[in-house]
């Protein structure tokens, strides 16, 4: 039977833990709100871009002297670049574990090709380093507050390598924010660019520049935007996952506390009962 003093100590320590997890949940809730605001702020640009791109692409296709576009060129996938967006810190349940499981599956499925990995986020870097993958680059400390120019830098490197035919395809693996409860793990091909479906809303614009030259400047911007969006989605999803994990931890701590309190009370009562028995039997022996 544990002693009273030990039980009290354990209860106190679990209570401290609970306070910590509760605080972390609040912090993540606040950060989630900020991340979502940032994601929402980028949405108008993304929406406009998609429509413009669709129209320009259709117009460029019908344009006779349109040269071919290196970023649309589909090649046999011999050398594949995978970009994995993880988080810098943990404590978010299966957020990173699920991501890595998917990454492993991707590696298995593409055994025939030469695979390179670019790690965004400390957890991802550590994971792939442990497994002796050769990383093309690692980006630590950018996922917490994604900046457009950081995303653009990564995108521009990919674009350059793709254009020079050093790589034949670029995939992006990321946790997207879907609901607070569960992130949505997505694998997306960002190069070659797959143009949005031809919609019915073909618009007959006046083109100040030939559509082909517009398309040439639009495509890299589109790839940059995809990576920027991925970073924003990932950080939202991360804070959501962390909120959920910390909420579960808090309620688990609550369960442990009530269990321990019950044991504490039982032990205390048993002690009292024992003392009374001793007194009563002592009195009986005297009389």
């Amino acid at each position: 039977m544990p002693s009273l003093i030990n039980l009290r100590r354990r209860i106190r320590s679990v209570k401290n833990m609970q306070q910590l997890t509760k605080a972390m949940k609040m912090v993540s809730a606040a950060k989630l709100r900020r991340a979502q605001e940032q994601a929402i702020a980028s949405r108008p640009y993304a929406r406009m871009m998609e429509r413009v791109l669709r129209n320009v692409a259709a117009a460029a296709k019908s344009d006779e002297d349109s040269a071919d576009f290196p970023l649309l060129q589909v090649r046999e996938e011999k050398r594949i670049q995978l970009i994995v967006v993880s988080s810098d810190t943990g404590l978010a349940g299966a957020f990173n574990a699920n991501l890595f499981r998917m990454a492993n599956r991707f590696v298995e499925e593409h055994k025939g090709a030469e695979l390179r990995i670019e790690a965004i986020g400390r957890k991802g870097r550590d994971f792939f380093r442990r497994r002796q993958f050769n990383l093309t680059a690692e980006h630590v400390g950018i996922v917490d507050k994604p900046k457009y120019n950081q995303a653009a830098e990564i995108a521009d490197k990919m674009i350059r390598q793709y254009r020079d035919a050093e790589i034949d395809a670029v995939y992006l693996l990321v946790n997207e924010f879907k609901t607070v409860m569960a992130p949505n793990l997505v694998l997306r091909k960002i190069l070659p660019v797959e143009l949005p479906e031809d919609g019915a809303d073909q618009i007959d614009y006046i083109y100040e520049q030939p559509p082909a030259s517009l398309l040439r400047t639009l495509l890299p911007r589109y790839v940059e935007m995809e990576i920027y969006r991925a970073l924003l989605e990932s950080i939202s999803a991360y804070h959501a996952a962390r909120m959920t994990a910390m909420d579960a931890a808090s309620s688990n701590a609550g369960d442990v506390i009530s269990d321990l309190t019950l044991t504490l009370n039982r032990v205390r009562q048993a002690g009292i009962t024992r003392e009374i028995i001793e007194i009563v039997s002592g009195a009986a022996a005297l009389g």
């Binding site: 108008p44 900046k147 457009y148 520049q209």
Partner: peptide, 27 residues
Amino acid sequence: LEVATPERLFVDEQVTEAELPAQNGYI
């Protein structure tokens, strides 16, 4: 008129007149 950058939306309002710095001169 809507003016947006990848990071945020700057303008979204009804305007009567606008002048834009297009590549080939102002419009």
